[in-house]
């Protein structure tokens, strides 16, 4: 039922788009109709797929790296008090400087290839992932820690054992929220990187098509990108939910409420 509703809305928008183009007779290099875009999709399917694969790889690598780095920083900041003093400002600064502003630098340093785009995607998602996990690590049920303290009292390594076996697990739902957010914004990093300088990827294809007035191809690339981004988010969300199957009912994780409430 929900899926049908979505399809109807989508079909309505496409029909309205085609109607607008037919009625106004707007030039195809300003706004191509959905039929033209569909034709471009079929005509350039090979090129689109190739560039999409590049962009998808950049996004996936960026998401993996950003998650790893965010996880590691949060663990360091959550466990070691000195690290909090040294790393926290760095974390804030990493977000204060817009990634858009340093994109040309990254391309200059890391080249036109995939590395600079992966770096861009990593940078853009690092902060939300690290901060949500830090929050999660801090908000551990105090009763669990008390229990763990009586169980490990008088033993060396007790603090780390409590952190590893309790705080980290307790923080995972928060980390999952961060990763979901990361999955939603990682494509931005990759596309910006491709715009600034590249020779492959959907962002590159869009710029290239735009310069040659092939606006239908540009729209086709945009459609592929949208499908890619949505598929990534749905996959990440499903993975997070599978890994956190133990969450008690009614304990909200953002995406769970968002998706379930529509049923």
């Amino acid at each position: 039922m929900r899926r049908l509703g979505f399809l109807l809305t989508f079909a309505g928008i496409v029909a309205a788009w085609q109607g607008l183009v037919s009625v106004t007779g707007v030039a195809p290099y300003i706004l191509p109709g959905p039929l033209a875009v569909g034709r471009a999709l079929v005509l350039h399917a090979g090129a689109l797929l190739g560039h999409a694969a590049t962009t998808a790889a950049e996004i996936a690598l960026g998401l993996g790296l950003g998650t790893g780095l965010g996880f590691a920083s949060a663990v360091a900041i959550g466990y070691l008090r000195p690290a909090r003093r040294w790393l926290m400002p760095l974390l804030v600064v990493s977000q204060a400087v817009p990634v858009f502003a340093i994109a040309p630098l990254l391309v200059l340093w890391l080249g036109y290839g995939m590395v600079s785009k992966v770096a861009m995607a990593t940078l853009i998602i690092y902060f939300p992932i690290a901060t949500s996990f830090i929050d999660g690590l801090r908000r551990t049920e105090p009763g669990w820690l008390d229990l763990a303290r009586t169980m490990t009292a008088g033993r060396p390594g007790a603090a780390w054992a409590c952190f590893r076996h309790i705080r980290i697990h307790a923080g995972l739902p928060a980390l999952a929220s961060g990763v979901r957010l990361g999955a939603a914004i990682a494509p931005i990093g990759a596309i910006i990187g491709e715009w600034v300088g590249s020779n492959a990827g959907l962002g590159y294809l869009m710029l290239h098509a735009n310069a040659r007035m092939k606006v239908d191809l540009m729209f086709a690339a945009l459609a592929v990108l949208a499908v890619l981004a949505v598929a990534l988010f749905v996959a990440v969300d499903a993975t997070c939910r599978r890994l956190l199957h133990w969450l008690p009912e009614g304990l909200p994780t953002e995406a769970r409420t968002d998706w379930e409430e529509q049923r």
Binding site: M151, R155, G157, A161, C162, H165
Partner: peptide, 8 residues
């Protein structure tokens, strides 16, 4: 068995 897990 949480206790032994925590104590390694």
């Amino acid at each position: 068995t949480l206790g032994s897990r925590l104590r390694g």
